[in-house]
């Protein structure tokens, strides 16, 4: 089956990211496909490229990256929710006259329409908030 996940919880604040990553591993182990993870609300912080947790804690951003690398999962961040919270890729940073950027590939800034598509184009969408 084709799955998509929606992640609304902030990393290291809510358990949502941990729960979603654990669920992702389990669904892949059962032979399913994880096409998309959509980050919305405080979930957009999961893409923060400056994330620097202590070494004895899971690096959540790196865990998302490995899903993209090993399972071709698309990591989509709502652009409206992201910009408000300071999550800007190189292009948006330039557009807003900011030094540096806080989000980069394989995370991509996308519109909310992608959440709607992810909801309807997969057999299951599971929300973690």
């Amino acid at each position: 089956m084709r799955y998509a996940l929606a992640v609304y919880g902030g990393p290291y604040s809510q358990q949502a990211s941990h729960s979603a990553l654990r669920f992702a591993d389990a669904l892949l182990a059962r032979g399913h496909q994880l096409t998309t993870v959509f980050f919305y609300h405080d979930g957009v912080y999961n893409a923060a490229n400056m994330m620097a947790p202590p070494q004895d804690e899971p690096h959540l951003r790196d865990r998302w990256l490995s899903l993209a690398e090993n399972h071709a999962t698309r990591l989509q961040v709502c652009v409206a929710a992201g910009l408000r919270r300071g999550m800007l890729d190189e292009r948006e940073a330039a557009r807003h006259g900011k030094q540096g950027h806080t989000l980069e590939a394989p995370f991509e800034l996308t519109g909310l329409g992608q959440l709607v598509e992810a909801t309807l184009d997969n057999d299951h969408l599971i929300t973690f908030a």
């Binding site: 919305y40 609300h41 409206a80 519109g111 959440l115 709607v116």
Partner: peptide, 17 residues
């Protein structure tokens, strides 16, 4: 939550859903 949910509903409708 409320604003972001309403925005999702509008976008879905704008997509013809």
């Amino acid at each position: 939550w409320l604003r972001e949910g309403l925005e999702a509903a509008m976008v879905a409708a704008a997509f013809g859903r």
